[in-house]
Design a protein around this nucleic acid. Structure first.
Length: 109
DNA sequence: AATATGACCATAC
DNA sequence: TGTATGGCCATAT
């Protein structure tokens, strides 16, 4: 058989989708966190890029549970995102800021 | 193939 | 407290 490429981890996009789908309802995670758990620390930008490809409405991937590291929502989707988050019981300030309580996935905070 | 762009982040000043 | 810089990743030109 022809030489196959070495055991390469799952594609970045695959891992991203996997991680995002793994976010429990009512909880949020930052782009950086998703990137980190996807095996590409620092690739937060790639996460955002992947998510923006999603249909946005009829998708299984809960993209709205991914927010910025500082707790704010990305401008292009902030409105829809805030709406969906609130529907899950996540408190979103009028300014479009999610409390850090919802962001933390570590005991430290 | 190189450059520009974007739902980003951490650090430096 | 803001602005700048480098890193990261895929798409579009």
């Amino acid at each position: 058989m022809p030489p196959k490429k070495p055991a390469e981890p799952l594609p970045f996009s695959e891992n991203v989708m996997r991680q995002v789908r793994a976010i429990p309802r009512g909880q949020v995670r930052s782009y950086a966190q998703v990137a980190l758990y996807a095996g590409r620390p620092g690739a937060a930008r790639g996460v955002g890029r992947e998510l923006k490809l999603l249909p946005g409405q009829a998708t299984q991937v809960p993209w709205w549970r991914v927010i910025r590291s500082d707790g704010t929502l990305a401008p292009p989707v902030a409105h829809e995102q805030a709406k969906r988050l609130r529907a899950e019981g996540v408190t979103v300030a009028q300014h479009g800021q999610v409390f850090r309580v919802a962001l933390k996935d570590r005991e430290d905070g």
